[in-house]
């Protein structure tokens, strides 16, 4: 049932208090938070640094903008409307195509412009933001998901989470939704956590509810075959986020676009610790390797090379 603190320390596992006191409080100054908490600010930062992310088509800031939506969307391709300050994937409307005057969702059902307007209006009034503060709605290009991960997830497309410590990518994983997790990608609700090797981009270990497994419980796909294409780009993009945010402890979420390659979806200033369970490995030894590089100036590309050499299974 329970283990001892000394065993956890020996395995190099980072606990919540360690994360909060030694990582976040020390390397992520509070004044830097808005640039990752506000997805619009993040998007502008990423664009300025030429990092690839789903392209921002427009921002709906006022109810006046809502009235202009129809005209604005007339010649748009597939798009997504989401709140800049939303959390947990709430309030995201995906429009995959058009059918005459109708906007077609990925599920195939069509809605008309009035419903799109209402959705944008709800976002602005703060329906999906923390504490009900008024928000802005972002319209961005829909990602054309690569089919590389087909069959690995019960619903949706998995994203890749990379932990970047002082600019070095130290650990990665993906979360695969299951029927038990109700299609959600939360590990503690029964999603599968799959550790990804920083060196190769291939699957390491998979766990569900803390127990190891080899095949996806719903799709039956062999999890060991999970292999991220263009892996170096993933790691490099994540690593470059250090320069633009200057946050020392960062979680970077990426997805793979068919044509444009890895796309940064969002950044997280308080990345969770479940990644250790998915990798069956503690973060501390990797932090120590990076700490030993203090004082050595490296570019993002050099850090990526270093990390891929060091953190390989």
């Amino acid at each position: 049932m329970f283990t001892t603190p000394s065993k956890l320390r020996k395995a190099g596992i980072v606990g919540m208090n360690w994360r909060n006191v030694r990582m976040i409080a020390q390397y992520n100054p509070r004044r830097l938070y808005p640039q990752v908490d506000d997805k619009l600010k993040t998007k502008l930062l990423l664009a300025k640094a030429n990092l690839s992310a789903p392209e921002l088509l427009g921002v709906v800031k006022t109810q006046g903008n809502v009235r202009e939506l129809e005209e604005f969307l007339a010649d748009c391709g597939p798009f997504v409307i989401k709140p800049a300050n939303g959390s947990g994937g709430k309030g995201i409307l995906v429009i995959a195509g058009r059918d005459g005057g109708k906007f077609v969702k990925p599920s195939g059902s069509g809605i008309d412009i009035a419903e799109v307007r209402k959705h944008a209006s709800s976002i602005i009034s703060g329906l999906y933001s923390l504490g009900g503060r008024s928000d802005v709605a972002m319209i961005e290009e829909m990602v054309q998901f690569s089919d590389a991960f087909d069959g690995f997830s019960f619903q949706g497309v998995p994203d890749i989470r990379i932990i970047v410590y002082k600019g070095y990518p130290v650990m990665a994983m993906t979360r695969l939704s299951t029927r038990a997790s109700d299609g959600k990608a939360n590990l503690h609700q029964g999603a599968v956590g799959l550790g990804i090797d920083i060196g190769t981009g291939r699957a390491l270990k998979a766990v569900q509810n803390g127990r190891p497994l080899t095949h996806h419980p719903d799709t039956g796909k062999e999890l060991a075959t999970f292999d991220v294409p263009q892996w170096n780009d993933f790691v490099l993009q994540a690593s470059m986020c250090y320069e633009i945010t200057t946050m020392g402890y960062l979680g970077v979420d990426l997805v793979l676009d068919k044509e444009k390659g890895p796309q940064i979806l969002e950044l997280n200033a308080r990345p969770g610790l479940a990644i250790q369970i998915a990798n069956d490995m503690g973060l501390l030894p990797r932090f120590e390797v990076v700490d030993a590089q203090d004082g050595i100036e490296r570019t993002a590309a050099e850090r990526t090379v270093f990390a891929r050499q060091q953190f390989v299974a």
Binding site: M1, F2, T3, T4, P5, K7, L8, R9, A11, I13, G15, M16, N17, W18, N20, V21, R22, V207, G210, R211, Q276, I277, D280, M281, G282
Partner: peptide, 18 residues
């Protein structure tokens, strides 16, 4: 507030890794 050691529930949470 400045304690950075493990929490009691973490001894349970991370136990499978040990």
């Amino acid at each position: 507030g400045s304690y950075s050691g493990y929490r009691l529930t973490e001894l349970y949470r991370f136990e499978p890794m040990i």
